[in-house]
Write a protein that binds this DNA or RNA. Structure first.
Lengths: 146, 146
DNA sequence: ATAAAATCAATCGCACGCGATTAAATTTTG
DNA sequence: CAAAATTTAATCGCGTGCGATTGATTTTAT
């Protein structure tokens, strides 16, 4: 069997470079996120909070494709750091409302330069980045809508 | 500030869909890998073993972008399942040789249909898959060569 | 030849990430 | 209205994934 038709060769997988890229790019964020004492997952959680100010755990998870078993402990850590508060919803006692604090809002200023710092160290042509972005969102919808 | 120029909006990140896609696609493998009692990382480790038969932990890690702190326990689990053996190299006592067993070779037959099963449930046009593949490897080399 | 530096696997601590389950609250159904 | 089904967050167990360190071995430099 010619190597390029070996279905179980690592190089012939689409998933593998996706898996490896995701890991490596998160690693690239690390030095900048370390300055803010955030992990990557905490960082994208804060992005959701910066945008929405107050949501239930459920909805944070909807944006991030994460569930409460990941988010509950993570949000407790963000609460300990003072960036969010957690309290039961009054209308529906099942839901837990996560709200951004002033300190959480302030953190946004310190995070503002991260995206450009990262794109500086990842030298991918803008056109390719755009293509990648589009296909990834297509793939994501393929993977989640069925 | 117009939303599309908000640098900290989740939708304006390239990393996020990468991160989310990687997670979701690994999840898509799960039902098929469950039948073989393998995790995704164990599966790609077996791919390396099917291809190379015998290597040091170091080299497994080079192919997978993983280090010994992840691989050592993982390889011990694969050893427990009987798919690989682990023994110190004779020439260089620092190195540990990982070798595929007959049982490990046999597992390959059962894994052969997985790639097609997965591409069946991910309906991405082949041309886009090809583009994605190429850009991901470009990005991967950008991320790891500096 | 020996001291210093480098290599390698292993270990540790911590933070995800997820499937499965639990418990409480709410909604739907009969 | 009451029982059943659903929704929600939390918890548990397990397997990564990684930075930092350790200890053994090998290589390099003096």
């Amino acid at each position: 069997m010619p190597e390029q038709f070996n279905p179980l060769k690592l190089e012939n997988q689409l998933c593998f470079p996706l898996y490896a890229c995701a890991k490596e790019i998160v690693k690239a964020y690390k030095p900048y996120l370390d300055e803010l004492d955030l992990t990557y997952t905490q960082y994208i959680t804060m992005m959701v909070m910066w945008e929405h100010k107050e949501l239930r755990v459920k909805d944070v998870g909807k944006y991030l494709y994460l569930d409460s078993s990941t988010l509950t402990p993570l949000l407790k850590r963000l609460e300990e750091k003072g960036y969010v508060t957690r309290k039961r919803s009054a209308e529906d006692e099942r839901g837990l409302l996560v709200s951004i604090t002033d300190s959480g809002e302030a953190l946004r200023d310190r995070a503002l330069t991260i995206p450009q710092k990262l794109s500086a160290c990842v030298n991918l042509e803008p056109e390719k980045a755009q293509t990648l972005y589009k296909i990834l969102y297509e793939l994501l919808s393929e993977l989640t809508t069925e």
